[in-house]
């Protein structure tokens, strides 16, 4: 059996390629309302399941457990608690950041779920799990209806 071995492995070729598509995602039925409230009213909303009582943050169209449609929306306030956090020294491309960034999962009292966001106005060494934080919104004119309409969450006194 003369399996082909004459090709020098050093000459093995790579062929370049890239992804051409771009994306434009709809926010969905629940998402559109959630981001409209953030943009227009600087409010963080949850959606409540009339069957099991769970309040989803961010809101969904349906309860993933009961499969009921969620029709009752509640204002959950802008204050939450740091459930867990990480300090990132690298950016999304793996490049070293000039200044480390703190990302936290923030939970809101009496609700299910939470929001992942940046923490600001705090040094990494001072962040604690369980710390109380509050959303800092960008000025109304700069808000575009995305999660970045919240600039960051900052620590607050209890």
């Amino acid at each position: 059996m003369s399996r082909e071995i004459s090709t020098c492995p050093l000459r093995l070729r790579h062929y370049p390629g890239h992804l051409e598509p771009e994306y434009a995602y709809t926010l969905g039925i629940a998402g559109e309302r959630f981001f409209r409230e953030i943009k227009e009213n600087a409010r963080i909303m949850g959606a409540k399941c009339k069957k099991c009582g769970k309040i989803y943050v961010p809101p969904k169209l349906y309860c993933e457990e009961c499969f009921e449609k969620l029709e009752e929306w509640v204002d959950v306030g802008t204050k939450g608690t740091v459930y867990t956090f990480t300090i990132s020294f690298l950016d999304e491309h793996g490049e070293k950041l000039e200044k480390p960034e703190i990302y936290a999962l923030i939970k809101f009292k009496g609700t299910y779920g939470g929001i992942v966001h940046r923490l600001g106005e705090v040094k990494p060494e001072n962040v604690r799990i369980g710390m109380k934080v509050q959303a800092v919104f960008k000025p109304l004119t700069e808000r575009k209806g995305t999660i970045n309409d919240i600039a960051y969450f900052k620590p607050i006194m209890e």
Partner: peptide, 16 residues
């Protein structure tokens, strides 16, 4: 051609 619902929401509507 374009629906406003997210993929998750489409799944839920049909599954429900």
């Amino acid at each position: 051609r374009n629906l406003k619902e997210t993929g998750k929401e489409l799944c839920w509507e049909a599954a429900k």
